[in-house]
């Protein structure tokens, strides 16, 4: 028997440091990059929200406190953009999710040529977003695109006009493009989750006499729920920040009807070159999204604790 003092001896310092630092060594390159190229600029960007930064004005740059936020409180256009963001995000996420789920369920059944079909229906995701935007703008143009004529033939439009220039309908243009572009993301994640459901569960349920609808409700949905929750959360945040399609297709028009917060920031920064004001808006958006995410996470916790 060695002495008790010896057996309780701490690990040598060198080994302790080596052990403790290992995970940091693995994550350091990624972290340094994220901090250097995202976090530091983010902090700078946040500081711009409290400064007067106008690109073409050499006398700008001074601290102005909360002036931008006061201006924001009076800014009708901002509040309209906020409402449009809700509309744009809600409709896009809902439709992407719905069609993505249906697609995933369709692809979960084996059939001849499934691999090819899967590759083809996921293809829109590989299309650069602004190219998708240009292309859909083209499709909605009655002179060079077929969509207005088809919608007219179906009785959905009174005349084969460009819906992108109709204030009532314009938002549906970018939403359609967004749904086309975003379905694959949901389909891929949901398909992966679907394929992870043990098959014998379905067999057991069939033997117990469950019909297809019951099987879907009692097995598929509960198994997918965690994936659905996290995917919708991530997508909601991402889509509210996603201005490419709107900038390319409508540039916020007509009459600001399709202006969302993200595209409004873009306009402030690059049309009016007012980076200070743009940063202030971005900061507000960031806070709103953080609050939204926290709420979702809390809601999930409460539900989990109950269940």
């Amino acid at each position: 028997m060695t002495l008790a003092a010896h057996s309780h001896a701490a690990k040598p310092l060198r080994k302790r440091i080596a052990d403790a630092s290992e995970p940091y060594l693995y994550s350091a390159p990624a972290l340094i990059l994220i901090i250097g190229v995202m976090l530091v600029p983010l902090v700078l960007g946040i500081s711009y929200a409290f400064r007067d930064i106008q690109l073409l004005n050499p006398f700008s740059g001074g601290f102005i406190g909360l002036d931008h936020f006061r201006a924001l409180g009076q800014d009708e256009a901002f509040f309209r953009a906020l409402r449009n963001t809700l509309w744009w995000t809600g409709a896009s996420v809902f439709l992407q999710f719905l069609f993505g789920l249906i697609l995933a369920l369709l692809l979960d059944k084996p059939f001849a040529g499934r691999g090819l079909v899967q590759a083809l229906v996921f293809l829109p995701w590989a299309v650069p977003s602004f190219l998708a935007g240009l292309n859909w703008a083209w499709l909605f143009n009655p002179v060079i695109g077929p969509l207005p004529h088809w919608l007219y033939a179906l009785g959905l439009l009174d005349a084969p006009n460009n819906i992108l220039s109709d204030p009532q309908l314009a938002m549906w243009g970018p939403i359609a493009a967004n749904v086309w572009w975003g379905i694959p993301f949901f389909a891929i994640t949901l398909l992966a989750a679907l394929q992870a459901i043990p098959r014998d569960l379905y067999e057991a349920a069939s033997i117990d006499g469950a019909g297809p609808v019951q099987r879907f409700l009692s097995i598929t949905l509960p198994f997918l729920a965690p994936t659905i929750a996290i995917t919708i959360l991530l997508r909601t945040v991402w889509i509210s920040n996603f201005a490419d399609l709107i900038v390319v297709m409508t540039n916020g028009g007509p009459a600001d009807r399709t202006q969302i917060v993200a595209s409004y920031i873009f306009t402030q920064a690059f049309k009016r070159l007012d980076f200070g004001y743009a940063s202030a808006i971005a900061l507000v958006l960031l806070v709103l999204l953080l609050v939204y995410s926290l709420l979702i996470v809390l809601l999930r916790q409460t539900l989990l604790n109950k269940g």
Binding site: V40, G45, Y48, I53, V261, A278
Partner: peptide, 11 residues
């Protein structure tokens, strides 16, 4: 993943 990257352009 939560803020508009536009915000980072100038910095």
């Amino acid at each position: 993943q939560m803020f508009p990257l536009v915000m980072l352009v100038a910095p």
